[in-house]
Amino acid sequence: MIEFRVETGSGVPPYLQLVHQVEHALRLGQLRVGDRLPTVKEVAKRLVINPNTVLKAYRELEHKGLAKGRPGQGTFVERELAGLPVERQAELRTALDSWLASAYQAGMDADGIAAMVATALHEFRPEGST
């Protein structure tokens, strides 16, 4: 079962961190269709976070069609996310590395870069997405 974690102070809302972790696990094949996600109470208690945060994350996953709640049973993975082919991932990684190099060259530090990436990710709406 997926092990969630939450980092505060990153500027990324905790519920989105949970959503991203599920998406990440789906891309890596660590979660598959039919897998049960931990209950809201399990996550709230283990991570010591607000259960509303977990509920909001699960609602967002349902909205994206990635998970579905079954009354009295829990929340289950509904759809998987196809991972990219390795070569395509490597291409994107190269582009990211060169962007990182220019950010460092411009004088940004790791925290500043992480904050900028987090903000951009949060605000970016790819064409055609809802």
Partner: peptide, 14 residues
Amino acid sequence: RRDLMATLMAAKAD
């Protein structure tokens, strides 16, 4: 602290 807050958050989930 952590234990007390875990109790509270679990109670709220219940």
